[in-house]
Design a protein around this nucleic acid. Structure first.
Lengths: 139, 139
DNA sequence: TCTTATTATCGTACATCTACGATAAACGAT
DNA sequence: ATCGTTTATCGTAGATGTACGATAATAAGA
């Protein structure tokens, strides 16, 4: 049973394209990030990757979200509503921040009934630290 | 002999205020950042600090600038023109990126005749890594 | 089927970012 | 004093970020 990475919205014309896109994301999803593979990236890609992940952290609310998700015990799920309650922002604003964090590669969401359960991408912190080292120190 | 942290520009009404501001910055300048002092910061300040520094890295050109400056040997000066030549951007654009990096705390500039000599703030990398740890892992 | 709960998206307004050329300020050299 | 070099700032245009309320889509349950 496939649970799409995020809800599919849109008008009917785009619906099939969107579903296909979600399927592709689903297939790619859950692959933990491997810091050891950074050595194979070009320096240019490293810099772009570092800039992208840094953009994810470039707002205190998003830092807080990553903090919340990364400190959760594995057995304890964290649904979107929990994050909304933990932040002094409107639900739509939090949803936008979650979107940025998804797009920049920090977190992933999994649908569970009407809820969406968020967690950090496995190994993303080590990946980020490795990117910093290679982008700013490596040749 | 005082060398101001950056050139003082502006109309004559603001000039004295600007000079005073630059003097304050000069007095505070050159203080290397100490990762050990992060423990004294509130979590809220840590998150804000991490977001601010991350914003500095949130563009590939700025990652490249920090990379250039951090890899320079101490005895080798790096003036603004060198950075401009190393990037595929207009001089004014590079100057803006340098400003962002200064404002977010990554680099500092020192006037040397008509040139400005840039370097990374001492210990800023370790400071950033410590901020990541405390902001995202600490209590 | 209808309702409720949950979350993404839309529309909007305002702020900030990013790039560029043009200009101005500081300084050294003539 | 004037000129050339260097670098910050201005003005501008278009893109992106950020916040909110309102709305739409999904799934569970009555």
């Amino acid at each position: 049973m496939i649970s799409l990475d995020s809800r599919v919205r849109g008008n009917d014309e785009n619906r099939e394209v969107l579903i296909f896109y979600e399927l592709v994301k689903f297939i790619c999803k859950g692959n933990p990030v491997d810091p050891n593979e950074i050595g194979q990236l070009s320096i240019e890609d490293c810099k772009k990757g570092l800039a992208e992940l840094s953009k994810g952290l470039a707002h205190p609310a998003r830092v807080e979200i990553v903090r919340i998700l990364d400190n959760k015990p594995l057995e304890e799920r964290c649904v979107c509503g929990d994050i909304v309650n933990a932040l002094p922002l409107a639900q739509s604003s939090v949803s936008q921040h979650l979107k940025v964090l998804k797009e920049t590669g920090w977190i992933q969401g999994e649908i569970d009934g009407p809820r969406v359960c968020y967690c950090t991408v496995e190994g993303i912190m080590e990946y980020y630290l490795a990117l910093i080292k290679r982008s700013l120190k490596g040749d």
